[in-house]
Write a protein that binds this DNA or RNA. Structure first.
Lengths: 245, 245
DNA sequence: ACACTCAAAATTGTATACAAAATAGCATGC
DNA sequence: GCATGCTATTTTGTATACAATTTTGAGTGT
């Protein structure tokens, strides 16, 4: 099928197409996983993806290799790949690390932020406020707010100036983003995060590294607790159902 | 060439061959890079590796993808791969993160270590001592001592119980190992590390998490300073030569 | 001697063919 | 009816063929 492909076949792939199919497939799959379009636990086969994106299996396999390295899919030899499912324990592990890294990155950012950086953070905050203030907002707008809220942390990590730290934090956030979305979306506590974000940005703009770091760590702990509480409740419900039957 | 391959062709690859060629090639390449057999900055082409390991390009490409994700090689589309070269800045970044993660992992390990774990750590320490005490030891034995010393940190991270933390620390150590080897090998300060390792293991065995964490952080800072001093001297020498000519 | 052009070689990117393994389903035997 | 074993299908792993792009180098012109 890839043989007689229309002129502008690239539209099937990610919006901003890289110059190689491998990268495009990687971006497309990553986006679908992170946003939950392909839910955790789904089996993904090379043929399906290749057919869906109108490419051969080769670039798909290479994309899978990268995704596996990112921890977004889990594969065993000759048994295919599955979108990684986070259990409660993996979540706890991830957020424990995130607390360290995000706290440090935020402290660094407070020391390193230029005026331009500060303006960028304030703009993101304002965008969150705007999306939150919409009277009868749709799910789509809730998602957008969450996305900007998570991106805020990515940008802070970028401002920290430590590229490796930035990369590692993005990796963790990618892995968790879907869960944060689906779990936190329905939680009123999310507005607490909004306030905490504001405080963090404030501390960064004031150049108060110690305070920014402390706030960031507390914020991560708070997010963790919210998600864990929901996951725990879900898990309890599952075992309740199992016993009842 | 892969077509008519001898019965026991697997000997060309890593000692412990996984069940897929891709994994074998990955292990083999990773070992060659980490130990410096393929020095940083080397250009690695798919054909060369494929020919050297008597496999086709396909598994080599997939191994490259993983190595690139690990940060061990750097590749640009259609320009091949190069073994990643660390500059002073990347080093500083890596050790800054390692200080956080290693410190935390060591503190966790102090709280979680079983008697079996403690015995394992003590055994590694004893092995270091043994290798250090050899009267007229060869370079090979020095390397072995360094390797055990670095592995000690991997094992501590494993004992921490946080698998993600363990994985991330191993990734950082892999990236830095070659430099630690080639730079630190000739440094007398390495015996300081031996003493510090002993102190850290002691704190873990005593279950003193706070002390273990503090010691680990100080140890990472010390290692960093030693490597950075040498890298800086090298860099200065380079620019001196450049100006002199 | 230097720059420029163009072609040839080398190298990666993609597709496809084939092999090996795992899974599923069916038939057979108890 | 159920378990077991075999075959058929599906899916991944590997090799190779082909396309596209970059690099190299020779040759030409100034």
């Amino acid at each position: 099928m890839p043989a007689e492909r229309p002129e502008n076949w690239k539209r099937n792939l990610a919006k901003e197409t890289k110059n190689t199919l491998r990268d495009s497939v990687y971006s497309a799959l990553k986006a679908m996983i992170v946003t939950g379009q392909i839910p955790p636990g789904s089996r993904v086969t090379e043929n399906d993806i290749a057919a869906k994106l109108t490419v051969s299996r080769t670039p798909v396999r290479e994309a899978f290799n990268r995704l596996e390295r990112d921890g977004l899919v889990t594969g065993r030899p000759r048994q295919g790949y599955v979108v990684t499912e986070f259990d409660i324990n993996m979540f706890r592990e991830a957020f424990e690390i995130r607390e360290l890294l995000d706290g440090h990155a935020t402290a660094l950012a407070a020391a390193a932020a230029t005026e331009q950086d500060k303006a960028r953070l304030r703009a993101m905050l304002a965008e969150c406020e705007r999306l939150a203030a919409i009277p009868e907002r749709t799910t789509r707008e809730k998602f957008q707010e969450l996305e900007v809220g998570i991106d805020l942390h990515r940008v802070i990590a970028e401002i920290s100036g430590n590229a490796m730290l930035h990369g590692m934090l993005c990796g963790i956030l990618d892995k968790c983003q879907h869960y944060v979305w689906t779990e936190l979306l329905w939680l009123d506590e999310w507005k607490i995060a909004r306030d905490e974000h504001a405080e963090i940005v404030e501390a960064i703009c004031a150049g108060d590294a110690a305070r920014a770091g402390t706030l960031a760590r507390a914020h991560v702990r708070g997010s963790r607790d919210n998600v864990l509480r929901l996951l725990q409740a879900k898990s309890d419900y599952q075992s309740f159902l199992a016993k009842a039957s």
